[in-house]
Design a binder for these strands. Structure first.
Lengths: 343, 343
DNA sequence: GCTTGTCGTGAAATCGTATTCATAATAACT
DNA sequence: AGTTATTATGAATACGATTTCACGACAAGC
């Protein structure tokens, strides 16, 4: 009943037979840890090479209870930030000999990932999408599944968490625009579900208040999703006000790129008439078409940290749950006319 | 020796005991195919629900010789085309109940993916990166591993292949610029390794020759990688010529976006002084900042087709190898001044 | 009323590896 | 020289499901 030509049904038993050793010895040679007579090892390796044998990963996985697969959950691949994260996470995982299985939730549910851990299909999960509403994820965490939150974090959850300091990032933006003497400060914000968004906009608000320049509510608009289009529309609305803002802070870069295009479409000069500031420093922010001042997250360090934590967690070193928060950096570009902070 | 608190070490045997049935029956209930008395099934399901049992995926995988994991190999996540492909492929795979494990090769080797199939860690691989130089991949294909090529294909390889008609796409561009009376036709091309690139540029060349307007070699420049920066540099070079082109065809959109920015940086008006045409129709091509005329690949259909073929292949229906080639569409936008094709 | 089928179930075999246990051979001590 | 470690290996077991095999109970057909 087996399908015509499975393309290499060799097992370690076949190798054992061909090398005139026991199957156990083949396994020992493969894992390398255990003692095997050098000449025996050579003989076995020769046969393996010759017969082009590859061990069956699933059998190994079942026996060792480790697949080598790590799940990564992102919310929207259409936001270039996430491909950038995937690229970096992929690198880190590959270096650690792990594979990356990707779930793109489009802001719906992370249930699939949670299930996969519970079914031992992945050893652990790196989650960029967590919010306090992530129920299945929360359950997985409570069951002590190996989960690490990165980028978006959720205070109080008993798991490892890696973020960058969104509060500090937003404060540096607030300080910057006030110091530069901007008068009409606009904000394009989002639903405060994700910690990233929430921290950014609330820190921005309160810092401005501290500085004696509280936000004018009429210059604040909230988008219900994060895309070029929503940014475009929101910025269009603000620009069409009788008294439009002279600077806009956007809670992330995609929104800011949309805003930049809205300005372009209306012939509004940036930075002449309008300053524009984003958040994340995605690659495109640096392109001449946008030349966007923004706040950079240390993605590489975050990814490195997250993978390290997850590996510890998977290997069962049941340390306490770490919470890592890394510093950000204000990157000043042409969309704010080079009024650099003193430093 | 087991780590303190594995987070749910339940097996079907535990369920069997609790439901007072044999382990085999639990399995039967789970798989659903086989006959089980309705009341027995209910009892078992109740226990499963109550104890929050999840079957061990690896054990199942080993027994059924199917993991439910599909590998997807992309060459450069930094090219927005690939995240778009991943998003669509991810959708298709999820609908089919499969998981997507992603390898980003950065144009190096696909060896990891090839290994993974051979080790049964993934059921099959969807490859976007194939070139005739992909040795480990070629070996996997020759061993009859379930591999389908998408986007980039390699003539003569015995495996399923799904592409769009790059030749026709490039011809439509050639026709378009000639008909519009463009005089100095520039081309930013790449190394002709990938079928996509090769077909596009060779078809473009030969069609222009056919039309009696062969390419002027001094207006052709070859980039050695595909990024915004290389596009920017190449276009800068062409624009700085004493007699710059009045239209540039770029072999892909990322290059074209870089070229657009080069024009912007030099104050060259698009489409006034320069027409610009890309290839792929990535999402950003439609943004006002670029507004790029380009050729659209039917990604959704391609992905659908690829997943369908791979599933057939995995399930062992050893049909012949299919070669699917879908039509493309010239999308005219502001970078070419709305001189629309007659239709 | 006897044979034949179908259905529901449990016991047992199986998947391919890693690992434990046992053993023979060799090395290392008194 | 006799006892004790140590090393190299094979035989056997375990991992947790799916699947085959066997069997009893009951329905259907003659």
């Amino acid at each position: 009943m087996n399908t015509n030509s499975s393309y290499l049904p060799l097992t370690s038993k076949d190798i054992a037979k061909a090398a005139k050793v026991s199957q156990a010895t083949v396994s020992r040679v493969l894992s390398g840890n255990t003692n095997v007579q050098p000449e025996t090892r050579e003989r076995v390796l020769a046969v393996i090479r010759e017969m082009k044998y590859r061990p069956n990963g699933m059998a190994r996985a079942m026996r060792t209870n480790r697949t080598g697969n790590i799940g990564v959950v992102v919310s929207r691949l259409a936001n270039p930030l996430y491909p950038e994260m995937l690229q970096i996470l992929g690198q880190e995982l590959t270096e650690a000999g792990l594979r990356m299985v990707v779930w793109n939730t489009d802001e719906t549910d992370e249930g699939a990932a949670a299930s996969a851990v519970r079914e031992s299909l992945v050893d652990g999960v790196i989650m960029t999408t967590a919010t306090s509403l992530s129920t299945p994820l929360y359950e997985a965490v409570m069951m002590n599944a190996p989960v690490v939150l990165i980028h978006r974090v959720v205070e109080g959850w008993p798991c490892d968490q890696v973020s960058s300091d969104n509060t500090q990032g937003a404060i540096s933006v607030a300080d910057y625009v006030v110091k530069a003497g901007r008068k009409r400060i606009g904000l394009i914000e989002g639903a405060p579900l994700a910690s990233t968004i929430r921290d950014r906009q609330s820190a921005f608000r309160s810092r401005l208040t501290e500085l004696g320049r509280p936000l004018d509510p009429s210059l604040v608009i909230r988008v219900d999703s994060f895309s070029h289009k929503t940014g475009f529309d929101a910025a269009s609305y603000l620009l069409d006000l009788a008294q439009p803002p002279d600077v806009m802070f956007c809670v992330n870069d995609v929104i800011a790129l949309g805003a930049r295009d809205a300005a372009r479409a209306r012939g509004v000069d940036v930075p002449g008439q309008l300053w524009l500031i984003g958040y994340d420093d995605i690659e495109m922010a640096a392109w001449p078409a946008f030349d966007l001042t923004t706040v950079r997250q240390p993605l590489k360090r975050m990814a490195h940290e997250a993978v390290a934590l997850l590996r510890d967690r998977v290997s069962g070193a049941s340390l306490d749950h770490s919470t890592v928060c890394l510093p950000t950096e204000l990157v000043i570009r042409g969309s704010t006319a080079g009024h650099r902070m003193d430093r």
